[in-house]
């Protein structure tokens, strides 16, 4: 049901001259958001470039719920106008990026929500948010024993006893 909606080009009073975008979530909620808030998303930026090329603006349909989308918008609004090094296309994997206190609080959500946010961030190509989520997920298993990891990851030990005792993937000695 790709609804073509025309978006008013007028600016929002008191909020600079950013144009508006209409985002439609998988539960069909229409969310209006300023363009420059979402410019952190490579995916949205590419869409906007498309609009400019064709002089046609339409709603952007997204494959996740409004609950998740609002969360992502909250993130983007918080960092509006900030340059984050991790968003750079050449940025290192998130392993050593700084952990921001605000992100930690922001991502203090249940595991399922965390997975949904990282997938949404991945879809929208927001590298900094993907990184923060990845760190938060890693924190769940960091420093845990193999047995504890199985419990957290919900996996069964399917090695045979012989395999378990062969140090096939020993790296740290």
């Amino acid at each position: 049901m790709p609804t073509i909606v025309s978006v008013d080009d007028s600016t929002v009073p008191g909020e600079g001259s950013s144009r508006l975008l209409l985002l439609v979530s998988s539960d069909n909620k229409h969310i209006v958001v300023e363009e420059d808030i979402m410019s952190r998303s490579r995916f949205i930026s590419k869409q906007v470039e498309g609009f400019e090329a064709t002089s046609q603006r339409h709603a952007i349909l997204l494959p996740f719920s409004s609950f998740v989308l609002n969360k992502v918008i909250e993130y983007c609004s918080h960092y509006r106008g900030y340059y984050l090094l991790e968003d750079d296309p050449d940025a290192a994997p998130p392993g050593r990026s700084p952990v921001r206190e605000w992100d930690q609080e922001f991502l203090d959500v249940d595991r399922n929500m965390l997975l949904r946010i990282i997938k949404a961030a991945h879809y929208l190509e927001i590298k900094s948010l993907v990184g923060s989520c990845a760190r938060a997920i890693a924190d769940m298993i960091r420093g845990k024993t193999t047995e504890e990891m199985r419990e957290i990851l919900g996996v069964e030990n399917d090695f045979t006893p012989e395999e378990e005792h062969s140090p096939s993937s020993k790296c740290t000695g």
């Binding site: 993907v130 990184g131 990845a134 845990k144 740290t172």
Partner: peptide, 21 residues
């Protein structure tokens, strides 16, 4: 994304993880 998650895990952690299943 899994690789992104693993990028902040130490070598010991990766060893434990590879023995999970």
């Amino acid at each position: 994304l899994i690789l992104d998650v693993l990028s902040s895990l130490s070598l010991q952690c990766l060893l434990s993880l590879s023995l999970v299943s």
